[in-house]
Amino acid sequence: MSELGAELRRESLISNADPEDFIALLKPRVMSLVVFTALVGLVIAPGTIHPVIGFIAIFAIAIGGGASGALNMWYEADTDALMRRTMNRPIPGGRVSRGEALSFGLFLSVFSVMVLGLATNWVAAGLLAFTIFFYVVVYTIGLKRYTAQNIVIGGAAGALPPVIGWAAVTGNVALEPMILFGIIFLWTPPHFWALALVKCEDYGRAGIPMLPNVAGVDATRLQILLYTLVLVPCGLAPLWFGFAGMVYAAAAVLGGAMMLYWAVAIYRVREEEAFRKACWRMFGGSIVYLFALFASLLLEWLGGRLMPFAALTKGYFT
């Protein structure tokens, strides 16, 4: 064997990864959104769950989300290497091999589904398994490289965590978590298309047919505006269906107004630098919007929990 061949062979035999690289495979930032939305689904569900079991359910959902991230990176290693935003990920960065990422992702997928099933119920576990399948097989392998509607359909995977959280408590699916599902589902396209507008060269180089690359910038501006116009009323739906209060109303109205403002800015602004700024504002602002909606549901739930204690202390001191 030549010296170079021996070196290559050696590199393929000896892992170069740090534990941090395996954590990076889980896409911790995406995981944090999964944890947060699943937690809200879990706490607003009627019925009770032991807090420790609830914590384990959220942990399992987080690991399931992470596992789909690892499997996504396993499949997309070649295109990740072509994009500036992703070229330093563990696989294109040469620190983790594709085989390691695949086995890591598969193991964690099975593990997370089993733990959720054993700790809560098999409806929630089945939904988690479906989410992982949908994200990896339907979105990553089936849609992402072939259609500009990739993130529209694929967004269903990212929208399922509150439904799983709800099912972990109740063992079924109801209208309330489906409304939360709808909010995240409709939020996904304007959020990612705002990013795609500023990164369309990157996506073009990697051959990923994001909407700006396929339909053009103007069509994407219009689509962002249209989706935002549907998203904002849908964001108010929890009020109509009676599972949200005044804090949520404030977040949904103010946040919705801001989303519309950012979407209109993207649609109208033509000057290059101002347009890029508008896109980044929508990208970052939409995260704050979604966070505010779910945080207000969580706050209202906490408020409801603390109310009896507040009443007690009031009676005690007066």
Partner: peptide, 10 residues
Amino acid sequence: LLFYVITVFK
């Protein structure tokens, strides 16, 4: 620890 906790609390 996780399986121990699940067993005890379930």
